[in-house]
Amino acid sequence: MRKFWLKIQYTKWFNITKDGLFKENPIVVAVLGICSALAVTNRVENAIAMGLAVTFVVTASSLVVSMVRKVIPARVRMITYMVIISAFVIMVQMFLEAYFPVIAAALGAYLGLIVTNCIVMGRAEAFAVKNPMKYTFFDGIANSLGYTWILIAVAIVREALAFGTILNFRVMPETWVNWTVMALAPGGFFVLGLIIWGVREWAQNFEVAAE
């Protein structure tokens, strides 16, 4: 069992996944895509929906970029990513509006704004365009799940403090006084900042000033 574990630790896909989820987590380490992370995390269900939407867009657009990477002319590379990403975002939006109108309404403008989420473009340019599809798949999944779990973590704290519930289940005693600030943008900043600090401390990821 130990041997198996050691072997896995040296596989490329394992390391790609670990980087995306923890070591190079897009929110905690690269601090990308925090606009939506602040905006939709006042309820856990919104965070989950946003996370899933981003997961789909990142994975699908990275895969397509990786698939056509050898035929994309270098000059129109950025605009190609943009077209691919927007197409997927519009599809996600239509899907949610058709089947989950309540969630689509709760995410509002942020759903369409996945187009501008730096993680999507970032993974396309930094990874997908240089790597084969099988690794791109792990990279896309890992990075977007890295984004998703931070969103859910932030949302659990915010929803519990702001509404006394998690996924609409009462978790706080009836006497709990809701912290309205947690439902607003400042609450998002506080919680996200604390989580980034905590995860970096835990992962011993410190930024070293250039000499």
Binding site: A87, I90, M91, M94, F95, E97, A98, Y99, P101
Partner: peptide, 15 residues
Amino acid sequence: LIGMDVLTSERISRN
């Protein structure tokens, strides 16, 4: 996108 629109537009307008 046109294909997706055809698939979803009816449900969206019903919603």
